[in-house]
Design a protein around this nucleic acid. Structure first.
Length: 905
RNA sequence: GCCCGAGUGGCGGAAUGGUAGACGCAGGGGAUUCAAAAUCCCCCGCAGCAAUGCGUGUGGGUUCGAAUCCCACCUCGGGCACCA
């Protein structure tokens, strides 16, 4: 039994330890009737008259859904227990941030995961499908600042609300495993991991730049910097250095890059993005010797990926944070003024790239390594980051846009070192920047052939430089170490103490968790932990001297980098338990937004390796996610009018649509902006709770899966939801009719069953490949067939049972109801997935289109194994083909068996 | 600015080298009904009476054949290391 002093979300989520779940709270009154109890809505009621029977068998999702959810909970169907005798399947959706209300995007994300979970359960796997909350982070502090509450109260209240909103969806989640990352039981284990990493040398401290608001005297997140100014104070933001904690992810650059090749079930685009992010480059590191520079600066180390363009160098640039710049800054006011100016603005790469490129001529020069009489000026430039390479570059304006702009601006010479094999270029007008794999002609050649590719020339230049002692070929990575320090309250405290005698001392593991203090206030900007004496001032764990706790907390990416492992043993008193991670890991299917393609997934891959080194994960879990699926967003039109030149946004329910135009109640026409990202400020957020109470969870689930391919954004439309609801009603009606019909024989039983097997085949393939929209289209078509068929009752019943099963991952409540109506055994949720009979999938004849020069002119139906020459004869004999030929003799006839015939003239 | 995607009827989309528009929405017509709701049936890319022609963001290319592959461009979306 967990003891929580904080009102853990798990208590609110019905995670009782007795094995019984509380009945879910629903927007409609739950029924106490179990599935076995006679239902009040049974169409097979003895009264029997058709009219009354139909009236009573109307599709009533509110009643059906509450009843089945209750039944599943009673039967405890979704609890995951380790069972070595069965194959496991771990499906996980990226856990939500507790923003306050669930979003239709969440519904889509969790429904997809639920389809996979329910399908895998039906195919015999022991499924783990958990849910939790990514609960630390800035919004809770912002809310506290805005309305005076406490981040903890705000967060746990939100979690309660969201769980209450999620439960009516009927997700097959093991709620007993739920946790929030702000539970001390969770973050305490995270602190244990931190200490283990520290011991293994995976954590260290160094200086790094942050966004500093000089008015509020506080560190700002990137999103709190708008156009280079602090969001609250409006002050110009500065880049300031602080000592911060880092994870040594860069030690794993090469491994994280190379291991991408093994991730066969990850989207190629995600792997490409990660590969580019890690950014392996081959280049030359060398030094320019300086002329008349201050003492100790007789060399400037430079790294370049284009040593082949060394003879096109025009200047040397150094970062404003380069030691030489800092040295010059001390003595020279003009340098200090420039550096201060250059440190203005945010820290993002985007801000740096978009900012005006500024340089300052230091007056110093360096000698060119290949011609010591050639001197290059040294500039301090605002676009050079100390974190990259050596913090110094040489500029080659002939083959780099940024350097070209810079040289034009400061009147520096521009020369080319290579030219295209064909055609003219004007190097003064624009730089020549071909792909490195392209062959070019070198005019100022360092090494290699006159005509060679950039890649070849780089290698040749590196070799030559190495031979002449000019520098060394090095492989570098773009990936920087992961800075995890945050100067904020609502995060996991970093469990170390700063002692005046011992330095940095790790907290003892038996003292974990280092809990966040509750008595804090947010009326002053900055980190309340910094000004909390009783929490901050502690004796050193090593020597007992008066010392201070680290007041930085951890980046929330740390929280989300191992939660998937914690779900395998969520209440353990160690971060993980060997038997549980051995059995449940890896995540077989991970599902989430493409916006997490790089950071979250890369950090998790690093964390898995680090946890493995510390013995918390097995070798096989170094890559923790076997398969990844990235789903699109749910969008909705924005309805906009203008008042006094300002946009006014209207809620969808205020707008009446007519002929593609929207109108307010008073008749004003509104502007419709289609497919916009849902955003509270634009009033276009669709509330799933309203949809569920209007149409039921199955309708919401069916709709978010239909129409759009899951990886693409989907537009929420009210008519779409209505259509989904109508369809489910139709399925229910058809099933009711079949349940009532007498056992009379009919016609076309085989045709119906053939269709059934094809549907089983296609829906199964669709579900397995995330082709949910295509699977649903097939189910629509099969429903049409079932409605129109004249087949006998037994065949129709068999087909309807299959339909219920095939729909059950998407619409589990309706499927249970139909299953029971037709006399299916037990829960459809627990029934084994239907198998398609291969013999029923093959047709005897095929329809072939006949083209003449690629244009379709006829269609022929032939036996499926007819020889090519016979097909050719039939095709040519078609009168439309003859007419298209117009007397010409075919040059060639292409017959692709089972596909097409193309006559070429 | 850099990296990664996506663009197909009025709308969401299907087809990943082989009949473009499956399935659904909206729209039109009809049946049922005293009437309506609900339900059922039919039509539905554009132009044309038709034959036929045109048509998958734009412009080129490869191929017997391209929405699909290649090149260039345009537009929209995601990420850019302190939003999660």
């Amino acid at each position: 039994m967990r003891v929580s002093a904080t009102g853990s979300p798990c208590d609110a989520a019905g995670a009782e330890t007795t094995g019984r779940h509380r009945a879910p709270r629903l927007p409609f009154p739950p029924q106490s009737t179990g599935p076995q109890a006679p239902s009040a809505v049974s169409p097979a009621s003895p009264q029997g008259p058709f009219v009354e029977g139909h009236a009573m068998s109307r599709y009533t999702p509110a009643e059906i859904e509450a009843r089945w959810q209750h039944a599943w909970t009673e039967a405890d169907l979704f609890r995951a227990e380790r069972d070595e005798s069965r194959s496991k399947y771990y499906v996980l959706e990226m856990f939500p941030y507790p923003s306050g209300r669930i979003h239709i995007g969440h519904v889509r994300n969790y429904t997809m995961g639920d389809v996979v979970a329910r399908y895998k359960r039906a195919t015999g796997f022991n499924v783990l499908h958990p849910m939790g909350f990514d609960a630390f982070g800035m919004p809770a502090e912002n809310a506290a600042m805005a309305s005076g509450g406490h981040p903890k109260t705000w967060t746990y209240d939100n979690i309660d609300t969201m769980v209450e909103q999620m439960k009516p969806l009927g997700l097959s989640i093991d709620w007993s495993r739920m946790f929030a990352t702000c539970d001390p039981e969770y973050y305490g284990q995270q602190q244990a991991l931190f200490l283990d990493f520290l011991e293994k040398g995976l954590v260290y401290r160094k200086n790094a730049v942050v966004n500093w608001d000089p008015v509020d005297m506080t560190v700002l997140a990137n999103e709190q910097v708008e156009d280079g100014r602090g969001w609250r104070s409006g002050a110009l933001v500065e880049r300031r250095e602080l000592t911060q904690w880092f994870f040594k992810i860069s030690d794993y650059s090469e491994e994280l890059l190379d291991a991408l090749d093994g991730l066969d079930d990850w989207p190629a685009k995600v792997k490409t993005m990660q590969a580019n992010w890690i950014g392996r480059s081959r280049g030359l590191q060398f030094a320019f010797s300086t002329v008349d520079a201050p003492d100790g600066f007789d060399r400037i180390e430079v790294y370049t990926t284009r040593p082949d363009t060394l003879l096109g160098a025009s200047f040397v640039g150094i970062s404003p944070d380069h030691p030489l710049a800092k040295q010059l800054e001390r003595d020279r006011e003009d340098v200090a003024a420039f550096c201060t100016e250059a440190r203005r603005g945010g820290t993002t790469e985007e801000a740096l790239e978009k900012a005006e490129k500024l340089g300052f001529d230091t007056g110093l020069t360096v000698r060119h390594p290949f011609d010591t009489s050639w001197e290059l000026p040294v500039y301090i430039a605002n676009f050079i980051l100390m974190d990259y390479g050596t913090g110094a570059i040489f500029g080659c304006p002939g083959h780099d846009q940024r350097d070209h702009d810079f040289c034009r601006k400061y009147g520096l010479p521009i020369v080319e070192t290579f030219v295209p094999l064909e055609g003219e270029i004007d190097i003064q007008a624009a730089p020549f920047v071909p792909a490195k794999s392209e062959k070019v002609r070198y005019t100022r050649l360092i090494a290699g052939e006159e005509v060679q590719t950039g890649d070849e020339a780089v290698e040749a230049a590196v070799d030559l430089c190495e031979q002449n002692g000019v520098g060394q070929g090095v492989t570098k990575f773009r990936l920087r170490d992961w800075g995890l320090s945050r100067q904020r309250y609502w995060g996991c405290p970093i469990p170390v103490v700063h002692c005046p005698d011992c330095g940095v001392v790790p907290e003892k593991k038996e003292n974990l968790p280092v809990r966040l203090p509750d008595d804090v206030s947010f009326d002053v900007p900055g980190n309340p932990l910094d000004r909390h004496p009783t929490w901050r001032d502690v004796p050193c764990p090593a020597c007992g001297t008066a010392a201070k706790r680290e007041t930085d907390t951890m980046d929330t990416f740390v929280d989300s980098s191992w939660y998937f492992a914690r779900f395998t043993a969520p209440r353990a008193t160690t971060p993980t338990v060997a038997e549980d991670v051995d059995y449940w890991m890896n995540v077989d299917q991970y599902i989430g937004g493409i916006e997490h393609a790089i950071l979250h997934l890369l950090y998790s891959r690093f964390f898995a390796r680090a946890m493995h080194i510390c013995g918390h994960l097995p070798e096989k879990s170094k890559e923790p996610f076997n398969a990844l699926f990235t789903q699109g967003m749910v969008t909705h039109a924005i309805y906009k009018t203008e008042k006094d030149g300002r946009p006014v946004y209207h809620y969808p329910e205020e707008v009446t649509l007519k002929d593609g135009k929207g109108f307010l109640v008073d008749g004003t026409e509104v502007e419709i902006v289609p497919s916009a990202k849902m955003s509270k400020s634009k009033n276009n957020v669709v509330d799933p709770v309203a949809i569920i109470s209007q149409y039921g969870a199955d309708t919401a689930r069916w709709f978010v899966l239909s129409d759009s391919p899951p990886e693409r954004d989907v537009e929420w439309t009210a008519s779409g939801a209505e259509a989904a609801n109508k369809h489910l009603g139709r399925v229910f009606r058809i099933a009711s009719e079949i349940a009532e019909s007498s056992d009379a024989p009919g016609e076309g039983d085989t045709d119906l069953l053939r269709e059934m097997h094809k549907t089983i085949d296609e829906v199964t393939k669709g579900v397995e490949s995330f082709g949910f929209n295509a699977a649903i289209a097939r189910l629509y078509a099969f429903t049409n067939t079932l409605q129109r068929t004249k087949a006998g009752a037994a065949a129709r019943r068999e087909a309807a049972l299959a339909l219920a099963q095939l729909m059950s991952p998407m619409t589990p409540h309706l499927s249970e109801e139909v299953w029971k109506l037709l006399g299916g055994e037990g829960f459809v949720t627990s029934a084994p997935w239907p198998q398609a009979d291969p013999a029923m999938l093959i047709d005897d004849t095929v329809t072939l289109p006949v083209q003449v020069n690629g244009k379709r002119r006829a269609e022929i139906e032939v036996p499926k194994d007819m020889p090519k020459d016979e097909i050719e004869k039939i095709a040519l004999s078609q009168h439309t083909v003859q007419r298209a030929l117009d007397g010409a003799t075919p040059k060639k006839v292409i017959v692709v068996p089972g596909r097409i015939v193309n006559v070429v003239v």
